[in-house]
Simulated scan of single mutants.
Amino acid sequence: MRTPKQRHSAEEWEKTVEDVDLEIAQLAIMCHVRLLDPGVIERVLDNDARVCREGHEGGFEKLRGMLYLHYEVQARLAEELGPVDAAGIVQRVRQHLLTRIGTQLGTLGATAPQ
Rank of each mutant, 00 (worst) to 15 (best):
E42H: 11
Y68Q: 09
F60L: 06
T103F: 08
R43P: 10
L77P: 01
V93Q: 00
G88S: 05
A112M: 05
E23Y: 02
R7Y: 03
A87P: 02
I89N: 07
R94T: 08
G58C: 01
V40Q: 04
E18N: 12
R43A: 15
T3I: 01
E14C: 00
C31R: 11
Q6L: 07
T99H: 07
V20S: 01
K15P: 02
K5R: 12
V51C: 09
Q95G: 01
E57R: 13
A10M: 07
L22D: 10
P4G: 07
I41L: 15
E23H: 06
L27P: 06
V17G: 07
V90F: 09
R34P: 04
E12V: 02
V84F: 04
Q114W: 09
V73R: 09
L45A: 12
G106C: 07
R2Q: 10
A49P: 04
L69C: 05
D48V: 00
R94E: 14
M1C: 03
L98Y: 09
T107C: 05
I29A: 11
Q91N: 08
A78H: 08
M1S: 08
A87G: 10
T111Q: 05
P83H: 07
I24N: 00
L105Q: 02
M30R: 14
A78D: 14
G65R: 13
E57F: 06
E79C: 03
V73H: 09
G109I: 01
P4I: 10
L45E: 15
F60D: 04
N47V: 03
L98F: 11
R34Y: 09
Y71D: 14
G109P: 01
G59F: 03
A25C: 15
Y68V: 04
D37R: 00
L22N: 05
G65N: 15
D46P: 00
D85G: 01
D85C: 04
V73T: 11
I24Y: 00
R7V: 05
L63G: 11
A49C: 08
A87H: 11
L45T: 06
V84N: 06
G109T: 03
E23P: 00
R100Q: 15
E57I: 04
R50C: 04
V84I: 06
E18M: 13
H70G: 01
N47H: 14
I24Q: 00
I101M: 00
I41Q: 15
R53L: 10
C31D: 14
L35F: 06
H70D: 14
L97E: 08
R7L: 12
G88R: 11
K62Y: 03
P38D: 15
R53A: 13
G39Q: 13
R64L: 01
L98K: 11
G65C: 07
C52F: 08
Q6V: 02
A78M: 14
V17E: 06
T107R: 12
C31E: 14
D46E: 15
R100W: 01
G58A: 15
H70Y: 04
C52A: 15
L27K: 15
G58V: 05
S9C: 07
T107D: 09
L98Q: 14
Q114F: 05
M30N: 13
H96Y: 03
